Computed example of a mutant assay.
Amino acid sequence: MHICFLTSEYPKEGFPHGGIGSFVKTMASALVNKGIKVSVIGINYIPNDETQIVDGVNIYRLKRSTVKGLAWYFNFKAINNKIDQIHRQDSIQIIESSELGLAFIKKIKNIKYIIRLHGGHHFFTEAENRGINQWKGFQEKKSFKNSDAFIAVSHYVKNHTEKYLSYHNKPLAYINNPIDTDFFKPIIGNESENKIVFVGTVCEKKGIRQLIQAFPFVKKEFPNATLEIYGRDWFFPDGSSYIAMLKEKELKPLGIIANDICFHGAVPLTTLPSKYAEAAVCVFPSHMETLGLVAPEAMAMQKPVVFTNKGPGSEIILDGQTGLLCNPYNPKDIAEKIIWVFEHKSEAKQMGLNAVKYVLKAFDIKMLIQKNIQFYLDVIHQNIEK
């Protein structure tokens, strides 16, 4: 079997990437270890083509078009040409993409096309309190129509997406994002007392502003508390920095305690476990998630986790047993959950132990890779109308 992932986020040293990139890297490596050929096609960060083979994964990064107004057309054309070239050399059976990725992909006979619901344009409109962009909305609808099957990473993302888009009665499976528990595993002895760690893109929907607003409440009870923020910046449509806005509007009024809030920027995936390991508590108060990777990653490392009670929060954490759920819009509630962890270290340690057991059961990559492979095979062998 030959599987091709369409993403421009596949991790590349020196460049930031998001959760989809981390997911595809984890999946691709696990599939290769099962003897499955894997290709990844995306648009490059720099203005030229690149081809790499990393850990057995064939990665094709294509030169980004700079044609104003038509870059999307030429980027999709380049992707289609590369798919056609690879397919003629070594037949592809499955092409997988996120929600918008199949909009302008030219379908080829005997290839099955799958969308994995990572959280698309329609899904996040509600969380970000904005209207649907007509162009992106059109692409997403077209992409869903082109897909032969769907994979939902949580019941929540399936149900919420379904409010806006049709699955056209095509096959759909529920499969959690896999966590490499050989990579994300407990590191004993590296924890720093009362250190709060956040990992993720630094943007409004991740709840980072409310976490910063919660910090003074924590600081009042635990003066040595620090907040370490790891993740790439997000930029407004006018090009201005979200982090710069936070520093001006949220950190400056905090005065001296703002010195204990540190933005570290994006960190390579290879160093991420060491950042989790330093945490006394990991906090992810997202306004909306499809499932998320950071919470189960931190749980796999035996960390007490404070996660959002919105969206799929209860699908990941059993409140009070494998972690804590918070109202991500309420800074005081976020603070109370952090303070509870600091005040109940023995119970928080047990929570971390419970979390590891849960992740090994629900997110184990060895089990989930088999579920993915079986679904791929089921889709390949079904007589799905093109």
Results as ranks from 00 to 15, higher is better:
residue 7 T to F: 01
residue 8 S to T: 11
residue 13 E to L: 10
residue 17 H to L: 00
residue 20 I to E: 06
residue 22 S to T: 14
residue 29 S to L: 12
residue 30 A to I: 10
residue 31 L to I: 04
residue 42 G to L: 02
residue 42 G to T: 12
residue 43 I to H: 08
residue 43 I to W: 07
residue 44 N to H: 14
residue 51 T to E: 08
residue 63 K to Y: 05
residue 63 K to M: 13
residue 64 R to M: 07
residue 68 K to V: 15
residue 69 G to R: 09
residue 70 L to V: 12
residue 71 A to C: 01
residue 74 F to Q: 03
residue 75 N to L: 02
residue 90 D to Q: 12
residue 91 S to K: 13
residue 99 E to L: 09
residue 103 A to M: 09
residue 109 K to C: 03
residue 128 E to S: 11
residue 131 G to N: 13
residue 134 Q to I: 14
residue 134 Q to D: 09
residue 140 E to Y: 11
residue 142 K to W: 08
residue 144 F to T: 00
residue 158 K to C: 09
residue 159 N to M: 05
residue 159 N to W: 02
residue 161 T to Q: 11
residue 168 H to S: 11
residue 175 I to Q: 08
residue 183 F to Y: 13
residue 190 N to E: 15
residue 196 I to A: 03
residue 197 V to M: 02
residue 201 T to H: 06
residue 209 R to T: 12
residue 211 L to N: 03
residue 212 I to H: 00
residue 215 F to R: 07
residue 219 K to Q: 13
residue 228 E to W: 07
residue 231 G to M: 05
residue 232 R to S: 14
residue 236 F to Y: 15
residue 239 G to I: 01
residue 247 K to E: 13
residue 247 K to N: 12
residue 252 K to Q: 14
residue 255 G to K: 10
residue 255 G to W: 08
residue 259 N to V: 01
residue 264 H to G: 00
residue 272 L to A: 05
residue 274 S to C: 02
residue 276 Y to N: 06
residue 278 E to M: 13
residue 279 A to F: 06
residue 280 A to R: 00
residue 283 V to E: 02
residue 289 E to N: 11
residue 296 P to A: 08
residue 299 M to V: 08
residue 304 P to M: 10
residue 306 V to I: 15
residue 312 P to G: 04
residue 313 G to R: 00
residue 314 S to R: 12
residue 319 D to K: 04
residue 321 Q to I: 14
residue 325 L to K: 03
residue 332 K to L: 13
residue 332 K to D: 02
residue 336 E to K: 15
residue 341 V to S: 06
residue 350 Q to L: 13
residue 367 M to N: 11
residue 372 N to Y: 15
residue 380 I to A: 02
residue 383 N to L: 11
residue 384 I to F: 05
